[in-house]
Design a protein around this nucleic acid. Structure first.
Lengths: 242, 242
DNA sequence: TGAATAGTGTCTTTCAGACAATATGCC
DNA sequence: GGCATATTGTCTGAAAGACACTATTCA
């Protein structure tokens, strides 16, 4: 049996632990660990994900999820947040660990384990150009994805499963909306993510019965029609129900 | 912006990529990656988890989840399965990735990221003595846990959340039962995991309406009372519903 | 006054939960 | 016949789903 830590003195490099004399790099390789991040937003009635075009081999010129190596002194979540800020400049967004992908051959060069996170950002916060030095960063509709590098298609599929199920028993859609919003906007978010039309009356009955929203009293006028009341989430932090 | 892979040649050790001349271990450390596994079973009407007593520092003589380092040529799931077989000798059990814990200080010696998996094993399959060379391996009722090493208490709490919610919308309890079982046994599993008594008629109505079970036609006689019909899951693989 | 979106209520069906009596086999 | 567990159905309340008309503002 392998006790946790039993092999560690031989395998892991630590400041406080002496390596054996005959230490050899090839004998005691450890995998690289990256964080990949799926940034979702809703724009023009479509769910979109942020991709970057790779500048180097492998998969040069193909699109991939943004990501990078974790640093030794930052937590996984901190690494994900760092990537997120680098790519989008946004803070205070919904961020959740998705899954860890660790097949041995998922990177053709070496063993790379990636911890995938997904983030939900309101479309208003988008300002890619200002926050990144990369030319080839773009939003892709989830239904019109290009060919993707590595196993990133699989990761996106996994994220879509999580997202579509989780909006039905949590308030995480707050991450895709501004502070104040019309109920019709909220409904649109559900419709886009679930790819189905919903009945307005039933939707409003349902969402209001959850008690997560409160009316602000403000009205939003944006055209030649009756203005809508603006609502907001009581809590902009994860709440599960059901 | 950091492209995925951009730093890799400097950080990761690969057979095919040359390291820079001035390579220095401390500059380019990478974290260790372990797999920890939570093995759950139900025995004597209690939900129990398998723990091992640590033989070395840190946390010497404290209880911990079984786990170990991943090998460079095995997937995460393969590593979890390897640990599972080492500890319990069982195969063909339900196994699911739980979460990846990567706080910088979770191991006092060095940076260790752990990918936690949980397994569900039927109590009949238990045969610890025969399959392990460690004296200090034991099942602990989830409600009477000892002090735990590292952040393993947090990991167990996380697993309990997953387990209690997931049995309500999936068939994963098949992992805790033998092939054929009485409905009263199945109900007991739910009651133990959810820590609540259920109504027999409502439970049977619910579980049968899911269409996941089929009657085997066999009866099980185990005492001075009416024998029970034995049921089995149509599929012993994960099925989600709702 | 026409166009465009906001806002609202009823009916039906389905599902969850409370609740108790009979059936069968073994001793 | 006594004991222990197995098996079965009804009623009620809550929630989900189908469905259509009126309200308000601006051009």
């Amino acid at each position: 049996m392998t006790f946790l830590g039993f092999q560690r003195i031989f395998v892991c490099m630590s400041d406080t632990i002496k390596l054996p004399e005959k230490y050899n790099l090839n004998d005691y390789q450890c995998p690289s660990v990256t964080v990949d991040i799926l940034v979702f937003t809703i724009e023009a009635s479509e769910l979109k994900v942020l991709l970057i075009k790779r500048a180097i081999e492998p998969f040069k010129d193909e699109w991939a999820l943004p990501g990078g190596f974790i640093k030794m002194d930052e937590s996984l979540e901190a690494a994900a947040l760092r990537e997120l800020v680098q790519e989008t400049g946004v803070k205070n967004v919904y961020l959740e660990q998705l899954y860890t992908f660790g097949d041995t051959n998922r990177d053709p060069r070496s063993r790379v384990i990636t911890v995938a996170y997904f983030a939900l950002v309101p479309s208003a916060k988008l300002d890619l150009k200002a926050s990144t030095d990369a030319a080839d960063v773009a939003w892709f509709p989830i239904k019109k994805l290009p060919k993707l590098a590595f196993d990133h298609k699989k990761i996106i599929d996994y994220a879509m499963n999580r997202l579509t199920s989780k909006i039905e028993y949590s308030n995480i859609v707050y991450g895709l909306l501004p502070i104040k919003f019309r109920l019709s906007e909220l409904q649109k978010v559900y419709e886009v993510i679930l790819s189905k039309k919903m009945d307005k009356r039933n939707f409003r009955k349902w969402i209001l019965s959850l008690g997560l929203l409160e009316a602000t009293g403000e009205k939003d006028t944006d055209g030649a029609h009756r203005p809508a009341e603006l609502f907001k989430f009581k809590k902009r932090e994860p709440v599960l129900f059901d």
